[in-house]
């Protein structure tokens, strides 16, 4: 199960990477939208943890990109964003996300959801 973390905040990336590896997932990291799209094209991850505000391409666009490509359209996207306005959240779901978590989030909840999505993704 391949998981991609996209965030420009090294400490958040570090913690998520630690947790996901501990749960036995194969983890990839991208620090901005451009890198993310490259990694997505190359690795075709099953789950993507995606920040919204990034210096170059924003998370919504990355998500739409994922959903628009036939070979990755089944990947699950979880938004992790400090933007908590209702419009931001709606935009996230409209872009095709499976889940939108507002920072600060609980890593426990996140891990639960990742596990559920991983199972769903394997079943589907």
């Amino acid at each position: 199960m391949k998981i991609l973390i996209v965030d420009d905040e090294p400490n958040i990336v570090m913690s998520l990477e630690f947790l996901l590896r501990k749960h036995g997932y194969e983890v990839f990291i991208a620090r901005n939208g451009t890198e993310a799209m490259e990694t997505i094209r190359r690795e075709k991850p099953h789950i993507i943890l995606l920040d919204v505000m990034m210096p170059d391409v924003d998370g919504y666009d990355v998500c739409r990109y994922v959903k628009s490509m036939p070979e990755t359209s089944l990947a699950k996207v979880i938004f992790l964003s400090a933007r908590g306005r209702e419009t931001d959240i709606r935009k996230g779901y409209e872009a095709g996300a499976s889940l939108y978590l507002t920072k600060p989030f609980s890593t426990r909840v996140l891990m639960e959801k990742v596990k559920e999505l991983a199972v769903a993704s394997q079943a589907g």
Partner: peptide, 16 residues
Amino acid sequence: HEIRTPITSIRAMSEI
């Protein structure tokens, strides 16, 4: 937003 970012790291690490 700027405050949420460090809090996220702090919370995640504390939970770990």
